[in-house]
Design a protein around this nucleic acid. Structure first.
Lengths: 235, 235
DNA sequence: GGCGCCTGTCTACGATGTAGAGTCACACAG
DNA sequence: CTGTGTGACTCTACATCGTAGACAGGCGCC
């Protein structure tokens, strides 16, 4: 044996990438609270302090995790049908969020603590790409920004909705119980209790997202003049 | 002097209400991180442990704070124009969020950790009220639920958008610097950098919210058959 | 062969949430 | 007036957290 009697397993040099990937895995598997410096260090078989070479604080680590997920969202800008692209990207985002539900709070919340331009770059790329897409579609930059806000807000709102649809105990047969609705005084919550079955059915997130997109996109079509082939317009 | 030489100031018996109010004030003034048991105890001139009589854990305290804010949202259900009411409530919600920006992360995020029916009651009332409103407007309960989701998602999405519009240092004159945009390689972010002025102008949140509502509501009008005066409809 | 840098480690400190046992005042029964 | 019980509040203690600061060891480069 060379030197490490305990762990002959691979101990490659760390890198920000490796650290963040491990952090993401930890968050995915055990939740945000499990992501402590000590725990992550142990996961990487390294002293917790070693992590500070790759993230200056735990908060920055969280940002890194959010960025890692968001960076997987890539939006081509040279497409013939920009609306179709918005739709596609929306569904990509949804899938990403469903694949990493524990990261969603970070994605929607961390930007509140960080001014726009100081945010991790991977977080800004979708914005830039979407601006590019919309401008090519004929929007002025300012209008593009507005559209971006509506669109991104819709995405965040939708995913927050969809992720709270959790069935407490799928074994339980009684609908009321299964949702914990029995706890509610049905004097005060007749409507809500009446919806037990509908709530239990869960909801088709993809379909709901499409409906919302329909609304947004149809609202937008009366908006831009450029059906296709937009060229640079003079000042 | 009777007994307390230090603080002759009022020390009324605590109550959940008092504790939560103090917690809310603390969060409003100093942010979420400032809300620690010790700090809150000191604020109330009480041993930190005393708080556990009124909230079983820090997490439950956070839920309480979110509930306290959300409970201020009251939506009358017996109104002539339900769409106008949705609009009004949306703006109420926005004002509430702007008044308590530090609580917004809790409002949008805590529900993800708690199954619907186990959430604080004050949190569920807006849902119940909105269902009632929509049913009275002629929607079936299930459709009402769908509308609620779209609407609530829109609200959350909008407010998350609006709250990230923060100007770093209003003293700074250069637009790029003021936003920290100079940090961005403008090879990669030409569009974003080009929007410096627009970003600095901030955005009119109320107007943007109204635009989104226009979209949603106009999408809904083709939806319900009941322009007014809805009575019970036979199965 | 020596020097310097970069990665990772060690130790230590203050702060946090909260369990469990203890204290003290006050309401009420006699 | 006195005893007693109950519930609000306090005390002490502990495991765990983020992270500052000094240190070690190996590798590349001159």
């Amino acid at each position: 044996m060379t030197k490490d009697g305990a762990r002959p397993s691979a101990r490659p040099r760390l890198s920000r990438e490796i650290v963040l990937q491990a952090a993401l895995r930890l968050v995915d598997e055990e939740g945000l609270d499990a992501l402590t410096m000590r725990r992550l260090g142990q996961e990487l078989d390294r002293d917790p302090m070693a992590l500070y070479r790759y993230a200056t604080s735990r908060a920055e680590l969280l940002d890194g995790v959010a960025e890692l997920v968001l960076a997987q969202l890539d939006m081509p800008t040279d497409v013939p049908d920009w609306q179709a692209q918005l739709r596609r990207t929306a569904h990509d985002f949804r899938q990403l969020a469903l694949a990493h539900p524990n990261v969603v709070p970070l994605i929607v919340t961390r930007p509140l603590a960080t001014p726009l331009a100081l945010r991790p770059i991977g977080t800004l790329r979708p914005l830039e790409q979407m601006l590019e897409l919309l401008v090519r579609a004929g929007y002025t930059p300012v209008r593009a920004l507005h559209v971006y806000r509506s669109y991104w807000g819709l995405l965040h709102g939708h995913i927050l909705n969809e992720l709270q649809e959790v069935v407490v105990d799928p074994e339980e047969t009684d609908a009321l119980l299964r949702l914990g609705l029995h706890r509610l005084p049905n004097k005060d919550f007749p409507r809500l209790r009446g919806l037990a079955k509908a709530l239990l059915a869960g909801y088709d997130g993809a379909a709901a997202l499409d409906e919302s997109l329909d609304l947004l996109l149809s609202g937008l079509t009366g908006d831009t003049p450029a059906p296709r082939k937009v060229r640079a317009r003079k000042a």
